[in-house]
């Protein structure tokens, strides 16, 4: 197992390096935003003096490199600075919001991942049948529609016309868990519809890709029933691409929810980010971007590790 441990460690280090590079990009990208931040925060009416005072207060008069290093070390300790608008600590405001986003992503993932994989297996088994075509058309339709459009359709039919679910997914701290699930069902469903097609089609492709292998023919010639051929003989060798596409979609569930959160007025990090950009609240923008980047890197890392762990040649060295 030493080999695997080494591989995983290597991936982990690579992930850290990537994150460092991304942090540089984020910091200096915000730096490059047109216009002076102090000016933007204070508005048109600010005098030169107040702007200068603001700049000093924010430390903007010091060299960018110094500020970057301060920001980086702060971020490492969980301190992303102070919001320019409200004056609250960024880490405190963000953590609640981020937890909400994670909850919604997890909610959607718990539904979407099993459904996509099971559907993927079924369409691979019944490939080129009517079921295969219908499943493909439906999932492709749902992935091709913009997510705000899907959201509004769902609101129209499941909230406005029938009032099964609330149209606005606002949260309060005293809600019970079933309540919470009910309240957030529509945004979660929208996300499910958005990510299912991709995962299902990849599962189907990964399995069908293997069906021409000699060991699949061998299994069929041993009299193994078709569904077992797929589940027992094809699926274990198809995990690597499936895990990768699942990780990609999980990352999307967290970082791509901006529109869905806005549509359903859900208090997640995406909506927060949009607000912060509008208000030029750059410590919050930077923190959000860094969290998104870290999520992406972490999930891809997990996918890599998962792919390594499902490879029997690596798991059972000679």
């Amino acid at each position: 197992m030493g080999g695997i441990f080494g591989l995983v460690l290597k991936r982990l280090l690579l992930g850290l390096v990537t994150l460092l590079v991304v942090s540089i990009l984020i910091f200096f990208a915000v730096e490059l935003l047109p216009g002076d931040i102090a000016q933007a925060v204070l508005g048109q009416g600010a005098t030169d003096e107040t702007v200068r005072a603001m700049r000093e207060q924010l430390g903007l008069d010091r060299p960018a490199l110094v500020r970057y290093l301060e920001w980086l070390f702060g971020a490492l300790q969980g301190d992303f600075g102070v919001s320019l608008v409200s004056g609250e600590r960024v880490s405190e405001v963000i953590s609640d919001r981020f937890a909400n986003t994670l909850f919604l992503a997890a909610y959607a993932a718990v539904i979407a991942v099993p459904i996509s994989i099971i559907l993927g297996i079924m369409v691979a088994l019944l490939r080129n049948s009517l079921f295969d075509r219908v499943a493909n058309v439906l999932t492709l339709t749902s992935i091709s529609s913009p997510e705000f459009f899907l959201g509004y359709i769902l609101i129209l039919y499941l909230a406005v016309k029938t009032s099964y679910f609330p149209a606005i997914a606002s949260l309060s701290s005293d809600m019970s868990f079933p309540d919470l699930l009910h309240r957030t069902f529509l945004p979660a469903l929208t996300l499910v519809l958005v990510v299912t097609a991709h995962m299902m089609r990849m599962t189907r492709a990964a399995i069908i890709n293997l069906l021409a292998s000699p060991y699949i023919e061998m299994a069929r010639l041993k009299g193994v029933p078709p569904w077992l051929v797929i589940v027992r003989h094809a699926l274990p060798n198809a995990w690597a691409p499936i895990i990768n596409v699942v990780a990609l979609n999980l990352a999307y569930l967290i970082t791509g929810v901006v529109l869905v959160e806005v549509v359903f007025v859900y208090p997640g990090i995406g909506q927060f980010l949009v607000d912060a950009v509008a208000k030029r609240d750059f410590p919050i923008v930077q923190a959000c971007c860094l969290i998104f980047a870290a999520t992406f890197i972490l999930l891809n890392l997990a996918a890599d590790v998962g792919a390594i762990l499902t490879n029997p040649r690596l798991r059972h060295p000679k």
Binding site: M218, V224, H233
Partner: peptide, 24 residues
């Protein structure tokens, strides 16, 4: 027909390395 395969008629393939499932 499937019920015959593996039980009453068996098959040995050219490349055992490719015909054994790597995962089991």
């Amino acid at each position: 027909r499937r019920a015959l395969r593996g039980s009453r008629i068996a098959y040995v393939a050219q490349s055992a390395a490719a015909s054994f499932n790597p995962s089991h």
